[in-house]
Structures are given as structure tokens and as C-alpha cells.
Amino acid sequence: MEISEAYPMNGGDGLHSYAKNSTPQRRIIDVSKEVAKEAILEKLDIGVLNSSKTFGIADLGCSVGPNTFAAVENIIEAVKNKYQSRGLNSKIPEFQVFFNDHVSNDFNLLFASLPQDKQYYAAGSPGSFYGRLFPEASLHIVHSSTALQWLSRVPKEIVDKDSPAWNKGKVHYASSGDQVIQAYKAQYEKDMEKFLQARAHEIVHDGLMLLILPFNPNGIHPSQSASNLCLDLFGYSLMDLAKKGRVSEEKVDSFNLPLYITTPQEFKAVVERNEGFSIERTEILPRTDFVNGIGPNGHQIATYLRAGMEGLIKKHFGGDIIDELFELYAKKADEILIPAMVKSAEQGVTLFAVLKRKAY
């Protein structure tokens, strides 16, 4: 069994922590609340509980909070409403919530900041969600928000100098050749098959998965996507540092981001190949990066990304270049990314998918 690489978000509650710099992800959870509530009301069969008095919920890729707590509360509220709408107030079960992320995630902060008035029993479940995490048929709802774009690893061939997919001078696939794009896509399909296989064991018959994932529109080249451009700017910034002699070009050549932004079509195909789940609903969520027509500036984007990427970059390049790298990134975001985001402001970038576990 291949071991997944770990890419934890910045822990603690300091200036560059994920806890302090995950507002965009929180907005996505907030705009998905009503869709999630509708999905649970319409698609959850409360008969799946059978004689069990415990309702199992897992949030996969929970990070350190507080976003995961909001997502869990939304789900519990919707499940309670489902029971109440059937006149089954006395049958509302107890809720057991499992918070999952890599072993190196800051679980100390996560559990230290648990809401005091929480309506559930909390437990941590460390490990990669590309493998089994829970006992057979122990979960009723699985949630994951903006986590499935992270691959289990960088595709091997893109760091192999002898491979036609060697990604020299770049750190992502979007503006690379077809071989690099295909290598990333193949890794995504392999990882998603593992994800679905594992969840098919863990979720009860007719149980639900609520997945929120960034996406690129069907039919456009990856290089035309503002989401991918956001990642490509890391490569441009690192190559600038290489030209200044701050890092070696060889070091940049051996660094690639383990992220793949899928399309709705690709996502549908991988779920249908698995055969363990039916797709009950997909919906493009409203854009949340423009508030009253005003989007973030380059510094804000760099700060949000630093909370998620700093550990990955430090591991490969060390910590000396971090401040300089993200300052460079912020300037490039203002010059290149912001105009692209404004141009594509009407395009959806986040997909909400409801999957139901098929009969065994």
C-alpha cells in the first residue's frame, strides 16, 4: 500500500495560521449551508439508522477549525430538522463526529477550540482519507470541503528527468505539456478511486457524502482557468528567486504542487466507474471571492495561500525564502491573477456534490 504524503495547513493561531486565514473556505461552507440542508432533507433515509442510537458523521480534511465546526453544526441541524419534520423528535439520535486530517495536523488546537455548546461527541481520526479510516458501515454522513483537490502525492513521472512528463521549470500542470497534464489527471483518478473504495466500506447503505470541491469548467484548457493560474504563479515566483540566486533552478525543477483541479465531467466519470455511489445532486455554488463586486487583493490572496502552502514549501526549500516568495507572489497576483479573476467572475469555481451509498 502506498503511503500518502502529508500536507498539513499551518497550525497554531498565529499571524500566518490556517485558523486565522481561512475566511474564503468559511464563506464556501456558509453558501453551501442551504444546499446541504436540502440534500439531507430530500436524500437522507433516516431508516438507515435501524436500531442504532448513534449517528456517525465524519469531516475529512478538517484542518484546525473553526470552519469544520460550522460544517458539522450545519449537518447536525439539518438531520435534526429531518427527524422533526417526520414528527420523530423523540427518536433524534446522539451524534458522534470524527474529525479527520493527516497525523501531522494540529489536532491540539482543533480540540482546544471545540465549541463549548457542541451537540455531539468529538473524536479525532488521523490519517490520509485515501485509505480506510473507520469501521465497516459506521458512518451516516461524510463531509469534505475544499480538500479533495490535494493529491496523495506528486505524480512520479513529472520529477523524472528521463520521463517525457518531466515538468522542468514549472511547479504545476496547467501551462505544461499534455504529458504533464495527463500524469496529474491519472494521479487524481487513482486517488479518487481509493477515496471512493474506502468510503464505500465505511458508509451505511443509503448514507450520504457531501463534497465541496474546486473545479474547472468542462471543455476549457487548464491554462485558461484562474484557479490554475493561482497555482502557476508559485512557479513564476520561484523561478524569479532562482534567477536572483536565492534558490537553485534544479531545486525548482524538483518541486511540484500536489494539487489537481478537476472538471465536473471528470468527477462524474470517476464516481460512475467506482459503482459504489450514485450522484444524487451537483450544484455550482455562488462565487464567494467577490463581495459586493470587490475581490481580494494580491496580498490577501498570498496570505490565504501561505496558510495552506507554507509547510509544503518549507519542507522543500527551507524557511529562508518564505517571506520573499510570498511578497513576490502578492505582486504577481495583483498584476496577473486579479485581472484574470475579474474577467472570469461570472464563472463558477466550486462544486457541491451529493453522493449516496448504493445497496451492497
Rank of each mutant, 00 (worst) to 15 (best):
K37V: 01
Q149T: 05
P66K: 03
L139T: 00
I92M: 00
K251N: 02
I29T: 15
I313N: 05
F55W: 08
N100S: 11
N21E: 03
Q149F: 05
S113C: 12
N228R: 06
V97L: 10
F107V: 08
I261W: 10
I28Q: 02
P214K: 12
V204S: 06
H201W: 03
K194A: 15
Q25S: 06
S254C: 06
H172R: 06
N297M: 11
F134D: 12
L114V: 08
R357Q: 12
S51P: 00
V159H: 12
L139R: 01
I338F: 04
D106G: 08
G207P: 02
P217G: 02
C230E: 06
E272A: 09
A186G: 07
A71H: 03
P135M: 06
S254A: 14
L285C: 11
Q96Y: 00
S52I: 04
F326H: 10
F326R: 12
I220P: 04
Y130T: 04
S175H: 12
W150R: 01
D160N: 15
H102W: 15
P115D: 04
A183T: 04
D240T: 10
K315Y: 01
K343F: 06
I220W: 05
H299K: 15
L15G: 00
W166K: 06
Y83R: 02
G124T: 07
S51L: 00
F267P: 06
E193D: 15
H102E: 10
T288L: 12
F215L: 06
H221P: 01
G319Y: 03
A78Q: 06
E94N: 15
F69N: 11
A123S: 14
C230V: 01
G276T: 00
W150G: 01
H221M: 03
H221E: 12
D334Y: 06
V64I: 13
S32L: 13
A123L: 10
K118P: 01
E2A: 14
A147Q: 09
S237G: 08
L41H: 09
D30Y: 04
K156H: 12
R287T: 11
G169M: 12
V159F: 08
I301D: 01
T282F: 07
E335P: 08
Y173C: 13
T262C: 14
L196Q: 11
F277K: 12
Y121V: 11
D320I: 10
S278L: 07
Q224D: 15
S278A: 13
M9N: 07
R86K: 14
A242E: 11
A269C: 08
Q182R: 13
I46V: 15
L49F: 05
I92C: 00
